[in-house]
Amino acid sequence: MYLVTVLGNLLIILAVSSDSHLHTPMYFFLSNLSLADIGFSSSTIPKMLVNFQTHSKSITYAGCLTQVSCFFLFGCLDSLLLAVMAYDRLVAICHPLHYPIIMNPRLCGLLALVSFSISLVDSQVHCLMVSQLTFCQDIEIPHFFCDVPQLFKLACSDTSANNIVIFLVGTISGFLPIAGILFSYCKIVSSVLRVPSSGGKCKAFSTCGSHLTVVCLFYGTGLGVYLSSSDSTSSRKSMVVSVMYTMVTPMLNPFIYSLRNKDIKKSLQRIVSRIT
């Protein structure tokens, strides 16, 4: 599954970068999303595979901090890029004539850079909060990676201030992108409903189908992780949902975008025919 995740997302990046027809804002953000998906799954899965192979479940303190930092960097980047892609669809559907002017290369690069910068700050705040914790002895985390809520539960020091900071940062990096996505789709729906022909409505909605599917997968499983982690008796259920969140969703994203997208399929077919 990890190999499929990496190879699938690399194929999306290769298709977008090698085909001049795909050098548009939508595919630029899609290739960035694929890169973030590779980093997101790579922050936890390789270590888990090493644990399976070596029959050792230990991780160093520095390794735990690195894992926390990478996990939140790429997880937050995923969230922000999904919000940016929703804005891209909003402009394309509601302002089609001004789309090339509004979504110019400079703005696209700036949106990607701002998304990465916010994600980097978010990951470093989480890493700093975890580094401030003190533990009474060697601990066993009831998870397959260094999950911050689990670390807070196992700390001997007072974590009330840490919880407040993490809540504020999570609100900015999590709920604001969700609010942006909901606002964008409210505007899109209201604009599409004003289209007189049913064919035009279907065409407009079909351009958002892949993005909506990925949004539901990402936020649905992510919400499940943190709802289940709030219940101390459901650590096993939390791990199962986390596997969906960190492994299954990044693996499915390339299939969702390639199977529903004629341009991506044509580009991949050209790459395969060129290789063969």
Score class of each variant (00 low, 15 high):
T5L: 08
N9Q: 03
N9P: 05
A15Q: 01
V16C: 11
S17E: 12
S20F: 05
S20N: 02
P25G: 02
M26P: 12
Y27C: 00
F28L: 09
L30V: 00
N32R: 07
S42I: 00
T44G: 03
K47S: 11
V50W: 13
F52L: 14
Q53F: 10
K57A: 08
S58H: 14
S58V: 11
T60Q: 01
T60D: 00
C64Q: 08
L65A: 07
L65I: 12
T66A: 06
V68S: 01
S69M: 11
S69L: 11
S69Q: 12
C70A: 12
F71A: 03
F72H: 10
F72L: 11
F74S: 00
C76L: 08
C76K: 10
D78P: 06
M85K: 03
A86K: 09
D88G: 08
L90A: 08
V91T: 02
A92W: 08
Y99E: 14
M103H: 02
N104G: 06
R106N: 13
L107E: 05
G109Q: 15
A112Q: 03
S115P: 11
L120S: 02
L120E: 02
V121P: 05
S123T: 00
S123H: 01
V125F: 01
H126V: 10
C127S: 04
Q132L: 10
T134A: 03
T134F: 02
F135N: 05
C136P: 09
I139G: 08
I141Y: 05
F144A: 07
D147A: 14
Q150E: 14
K153F: 03
C156W: 00
C156Y: 03
N162W: 00
N163Q: 13
I166R: 11
L168K: 03
T171V: 03
S173I: 09
F175W: 14
L176A: 00
I181S: 00
S184D: 07
K187G: 09
K187M: 13
K187S: 12
C202W: 10
K203A: 15
F205Y: 13
S206Q: 12
C208D: 04
G209R: 15
G209S: 15
G209V: 14
S210W: 07
V215I: 14
C216T: 15
L227V: 08
S229H: 13
S230G: 04
D231Y: 14
R236Y: 12
M239W: 06
S242I: 02
V243N: 04
M244K: 00
M244D: 08
Y245E: 09
I256L: 13
L259M: 02
R260V: 04
N261L: 12
K265C: 15
Q269N: 12
T276R: 15
T276V: 15
T276S: 15
